[in-house]
Amino acid sequence: MSINENDVILQVQDLKKHFMPHQGLLQSLGTKTKKVIKAVDGISFGIRRGEIFGLIGESGSGKTTTGKLVMKLIEPTSGKIVFNGEDVTITDRGRTKAYRRQVQMIFQDPYASMNPRFKIRDVLGEPLIIHKIEGDRLRHEEMIIKSLTEVKLNPPSDFMGRYPHMLSGGQRQRVATARTLILNPMMLVADEPVSMIDLSTRAEILHMMKDVQRDLGLTYLYITHDLSTARYFTDRIAVMYLGRIVEMGRADDVIDNPIHPYTRALIDAVPEPETGMVDIIKELPISGEIPSPANIPPGCRFHTRCPYAKPVCSEQTEPELSDVGNGHFHACRRWKEL
């Protein structure tokens, strides 16, 4: 399916999620200002219909929080989410439920995301009951069979009577995908769907997800820390650092020609299966670890770890995303000098 650049299915505008940590009485007497944890701090992106969009970041970058915001599992502090032309930032319960039929989620851990006492038939039947999908038992059974066929669990009748513990990790993740497909969604949010799956079958699951996406014309938001699978799996990616997007563009552009120093460092740190590295101590362009989102550095929030930082980076306001052409965005003020 060719992707139309102007046909945006999900638009996120200046989305923020700030968490207020719980404070005891003594603490609140001691300090005047509450420390706010800025997990997501003003991000904007659009996902086109039929596209696989990857959100990449280290732990603490805010990628999972963004996924939860898109799923409407948590309320944003500010900003806007527009889905399929409709503002869904604030919705009542009924509308939220309807929204979740259109946007479904695949979770990271296929061992924990299924009730161990449910047979596969019941795992897949539950969303039909929750969303009060019309039809009798027979009709529901047909839908279950159809979704199992879509994820290539053949023959479906072999799997319906089994319990999750009788399946391998790969098969469970197929069931998890089938569970989302049964409601005919338009978009799937997949948070690290293959990180718990064995290397030998990881590619199999990604293939299956891609096939399903192509066959049904779905849109994916793929959240991961793994650049290598993202390159293989996604059309476009956005790299997050400390609650902001620092670089965004076509996966090939971003990985082959990274602009932001953070993206470059991430790419340099990924090991490759080649010889001659054993006695080499890799030179790492950046040191230290990601700072706390409760204490975000002023100016460009990456300046504390950036090898190219100059006073201008911390003194001026936060750099905004700017386009270098070809839809490749970055948020680095000094990119031309690097």
Binding site: S168, A203, H207, Y232, I255
Partner: peptide, 24 residues
């Protein structure tokens, strides 16, 4: 051989990744 082919590489784009059917 198969395990190496199933490893996604960052610096080299491949169209299809191979995998090993079945489970241990």
């Amino acid at each position: 051989e198969k395990l190496l082919l199933a490893t996604p590489l960052l610096k080299k784009k491949v169209e299809t990744l191979s995998f090993i059917p079945g489970a241990p």
